[in-house]
Computed example of a mutant assay.
Amino acid sequence: MFRGKAELIDPETGKAVATFTEEGQEMKVVLKHPQTISGTTRLAIYGTEKDEELIAIAAEGGDETTVREFHGPSPLGSLTNGAEISLTRSPGGKLGSLLEVLGKGTVHQEKHRSH
Rank of each mutant, 00 (worst) to 15 (best):
G4L: 08
G4R: 02
K5A: 06
K5R: 10
A6T: 08
L8F: 09
P11M: 11
E12C: 02
E12T: 06
T13S: 15
K15E: 14
A16S: 10
V17I: 08
A18W: 05
E22L: 06
E23A: 14
G24H: 11
E26P: 00
E26V: 15
M27E: 10
K28T: 14
V29L: 10
L31N: 06
K32P: 02
H33I: 11
H33G: 09
G39P: 03
G39L: 04
T40M: 15
T41C: 12
T41H: 10
T41F: 02
T41P: 04
R42P: 00
R42A: 03
L43V: 10
A44Y: 01
A44T: 00
I45P: 03
I45H: 04
I45T: 04
I45M: 01
I45V: 08
Y46E: 01
Y46T: 07
G47K: 05
T48D: 05
K50L: 06
I55D: 07
I57P: 00
E64G: 09
E64V: 08
T66S: 09
T66C: 08
R68F: 08
E69K: 10
E69Q: 12
H71L: 11
G72F: 01
P73F: 14
P73I: 14
S74T: 11
S74Q: 11
G77H: 07
G77P: 02
S78P: 07
S78E: 11
S78G: 08
N81P: 07
G82L: 06
S86F: 07
S90F: 02
P91Q: 05
G93Q: 07
K94P: 08
K94V: 11
L95F: 12
G96C: 05
G96A: 10
L98H: 13
L102W: 03
K104Y: 01
T106W: 08
T106Q: 07
T106K: 07
V107A: 03
H108D: 09
K111L: 13
K111A: 15
H115Y: 09
